[in-house]
């Protein structure tokens, strides 16, 4: 514990930064993916184009992406913005497919019924489709959250200050405790984020509780690496 005690401030600083770097991409992933996915489920062509292209994004290796981003968006090479943009792209890539599954999971019957009741299209989206897509959206967000927190670490390679620093630095200086601290701290962040998401789900989707199909919902969320499959 010696290393941790003497470097406690460093660890706290890196953890805070790690959280900061994770939160933005997770939120961007959600906000961008939901409308894209909603458009994707309107037709075969839309689905093929949107799902394929966003899935392709996920296949871009992270390091080259970090390196070319400054050239594309005109940021400084060592800016955290590069990392945030790159991670947002990955988050969108995962989330679009999950969200498309989420909207597909809304029963046709219920959509028809809401139309027959006299919901306008807009009301139908906000009051019926969006909440009913909630459980599968949530499952997708849990995957995005874990994946983003893990990926932030890679950012140290382009100079970002986060828990990944403890891995590289600990390895170079052969301090096992430093590496272990990095791992445990990232795991803790991932756990806390997951817990927050689950609690949000409880709060926002009370009708879904005691629902035996939860694992089925999680199953429908995959990493979008099978690019050929456009459903």
């Amino acid at each position: 514990m010696n290393w941790l005690i003497s470097n406690f401030d460093l660890v706290v600083g890196l953890t805070v930064n790690h959280i900061r770097l994770s939160v933005v991409p997770i939120i961007v992933g959600f906000v961008v993916a939901v409308p894209l996915a909603r458009i994707a489920v309107t037709g075969r062509t839309a689905r093929a184009v949107i799902i394929t292209s966003t899935s392709l994004l996920y296949t871009i290796p992270s390091l080259p992406l970090f390196v070319i981003l400054p050239a594309i968006i005109g940021t400084k090479v060592l800016s955290d913005i590069n990392l945030i943009v790159a991670l947002s792209i990955y988050a969108v890539a995962i989330m679009v497919r999950a969200a498309a599954d989420a909207f597909t999971s809304v029963p046709v019957d219920v959509k028809q019924a809401s139309l027959a009741m006299g919901y306008s299209r807009w009301q139908q989206f906000w009051r019926v489709e969006f909440p009913l897509a909630g459980p599968v959206l949530l499952a997708g967000m849990r995957v995005v959250s874990v994946s983003t927190i893990a990926l932030v670490s890679v950012g140290v390679l382009i100079g970002s200050q986060n828990l990944g620093y403890l891995f590289t630095n600990g390895k170079q200086r052969n301090i096992l405790e430093e590496v272990a601290t990095g791992i445990v701290a990232s795991l803790l962040i991932a756990l806390v984020f997951d817990l927050i998401l689950v609690l949000l789900g409880r709060l926002l989707l009370p009708w879904n509780r005691k629902n035996g199909s939860r694992s089925a919902q999680a199953d429908s969320v995959r990493l979008p690496i099978t690019v050929g499959d456009v459903g």
Partner: peptide, 30 residues
Amino acid sequence: PVRLRRSIGYVMQNGGLLPHRRIVDNVATV
């Protein structure tokens, strides 16, 4: 069409109830 539908009752085969709304809110939809 939206106004028309709000003035006509519609019952579907499987109820077509909104799974996320309580019974009382389902009935109060229109």
